[in-house]
Design a protein around this nucleic acid. Structure first.
Lengths: 211, 211
DNA sequence: CCCTGTGAAACAGTTCACAGCG
DNA sequence: CGCTGTGAACTGTTTCACAGGG
């Protein structure tokens, strides 16, 4: 499993993509091996990039046949799939939150699973979406611990983001995907936060769309 | 508005955030000026970062009072708000798509507006969400042109992403926000594409959550 | 040949360290 | 002093260029 402390962030993102590509190919085609330039062209990146990433995880291919698909899937999985599993809590069951639950859980897009959701609106509480129950926010600490949840998704209003993040962190969560426009950086060095704010990104697209 | 060809991507993202912070402050407080370290601490970044970004857009503050809030909002707006407006089309009115329309359009989070949506499912067509009509995908080229839309959001199934992107681009769109797991990079150098794939990012969070 | 693997260069983005000013 | 503005150093990431192998 080569514990390899801390691969670059961008490499991790691509490993996740490589695995999806490889899984698709291994289902659809009868193919045992693949070249770096084949993976690269599907993802529209360079083959050097692919080889560099695979070098970083210590995988070697053969010059004649490229990389073994099955082995590579296993190696990537051993690196990016946490042994404890990837159990997720979603906080804020509004428009976005209630769309994300079925989006992530329905299709087996990955091993990531939303286990519980939280809100403060009585209309939402004790309702299920795609089998995921919505609890009152007050129950967050106990449910997080009981269900052994390690990742949080915040889809609440901007104003609530900070206090929700603090609740998640003191409940023991280790990673957060933050959909709000409220920056959560440097909240706690032991918790990984990914900012995922649609408005900021759309404004960036708008800027570059105009050259 | 100082055409400054191509500010760094990260700077644009932060300018969008600075503007939101400044707008909030100018509404809530009676404050004319602000120091770089004040903006920085709200966003949890460094004050050097703020000053560096403002330097890049050619704005100078005063040592005594910092930056003028009103002027700075105007300057940032003149840079990131396109003159043609930011009219958006959304393709794929599934779970995610139908959540994003009200999320973006309801609150006046920014000047970005979704003008039209598209799908191929007859159940969706000619239905309105938050006042936005859903058209059949076949109508995309004509509506994009008629409505002068310059930005596309793709929330369709992965398999459809590539052909939708091609449709959008040949219809004249200049920027795309891509929610699918299908990479659209290097599709066309004149079109800016931002990849916004939740699964990849969540897997990254899961990896770093585990140290 | 056409592959992989990889030092070294290039590029992008952030932070350091400090000059200069009111 | 405490602030802004900025060259220079540094860190992260991608690309170049090529050695080496079947």
């Amino acid at each position: 499993m080569l514990s390899l402390h801390a691969l670059p962030e961008k490499t991790i993102e691509r490993l996740s993509q490589y695995r999806r590509v490889l899984l698709k190919i291994s289902k659809q085609q009868n193919k045992d091996n693949i070249f770096s330039h084949e993976i690269a062209s599907i993802l529209h990146i360079t083959s050097v990039q692919v080889r560099r990433d695979l070098m970083l995880i210590g995988y070697s291919g053969s010059q004649r046949k490229g990389y073994q698909i099955k082995m590579l899937i296993q190696l990537i999985s051993s690196i990016i799939d946490a042994k404890n599993g990837q159990r997720i809590a979603l906080v804020g069951v509004g428009n976005l939150g209630s769309a994300i639950i079925p989006y992530l859980n329905s299709k087996k897009k990955s091993k990531l699973q939303i286990i519980a959701s939280f809100d403060i609106n009585p209309d939402k509480i004790n309702r299920k979406i795609s089998g995921v129950n919505c609890y009152h926010l007050d129950e967050l600490p106990s449910i997080i611990k009981k269900e052994n949840i390690t990742i949080g998704i915040i889809t609440a209003p901007d104003d609530a983001a900070w206090s929700i993040a603090e609740m998640l962190i003191s409940a023991g969560i280790k990673g957060i995907l933050n959909f709000t426009s409220t920056s959560l950086r440097i909240l706690n060095k032991n918790v990984f936060v990914e900012e995922y704010d649609m408005i900021t990104l759309l404004e960036k697209v708008a800027y570059f769309a105009n050259k």
